[in-house]
Amino acid sequence: MIGDITLGQYYPAKGILHRLDPRIKVLLLMASIVLIFCTFNFYALGIVTALVIASVIMSKVPLKLYLKSMKAIIFVILLTAVLNLFYGAGEPIFEWWVFRITRAGIHNSIFIAVRIVLLVMLSSTLTFTTSPTDLTDALERLMKPLGIFKIKTHEIAMMMTIALRFVPTLLEETDKIMSAQKARGADMESGNILKRIKALIPILIPLFVSAFRRAYELAMAMECRCYQGGSGRTRMKQLHMGARDAVAIIIIALVTAGVVLCNIFL
């Protein structure tokens, strides 16, 4: 059961979005997020919504998975929508006690709700269509310019890679330790919350000890393989930008232009 957790929610499929350069995907996602929050009228919002729907369809990921990621934040969406409803200037349409709803309030609450939905959908397309390794790879390369601020970008990416590698191993280990403690009579399923938290201690301590031992051994194995940090290191996988990446950039550029025009003229 515990091993079923999938990381980054990557969904392998043969969609065109899967084959885009991960760096481009990350950059375009960031641009699109800015775009989502720069829509000031319904026409602009419509264009961005069309973009998101198109990418959801092109991702070839079942809609069910998107709805699942939506479910987790439905409460947040409703709360912000309701709160925004009551914060609007102008002539009230409806007034009762301290609550007043204005036309601007309704406008705001619709906008904020749609924006959050779009944001989550679009971010999900990135994590659904990009494997965790590709993602760390892309982030390492995109972060490279930060090196001039003495940020150790290679080390950060290396840590992410190792963390991803060891999540399943440590999950498996947790499972084993839990079984071992149960076999010794540990009770993890009954009692109040405090008692259950206490029951975790005999699981966490062996897990930590073993994680440190693994870290020590892994460090030695990496030394055996001549690891000397990021300098002088090459990569087997080279990321190549192709025609489809150019098309993606052009599409986002056109959408941006559309949104700007809508904001100004309509």
């Binding site: 390794t133 194995a221 001549c226």
Partner: peptide
């Protein structure tokens, strides 16, 4: 288990030569 660095077999094998440049 404690010698493999990457989460894909071929990327792990590439780790050594990558370090050598």
């Amino acid at each position: 288990d404690n010698q493999l660095v990457a989460s894909i077999v071929e990327e792990d094998v590439a780790f050594g030569p990558e370090n050598l440049g």
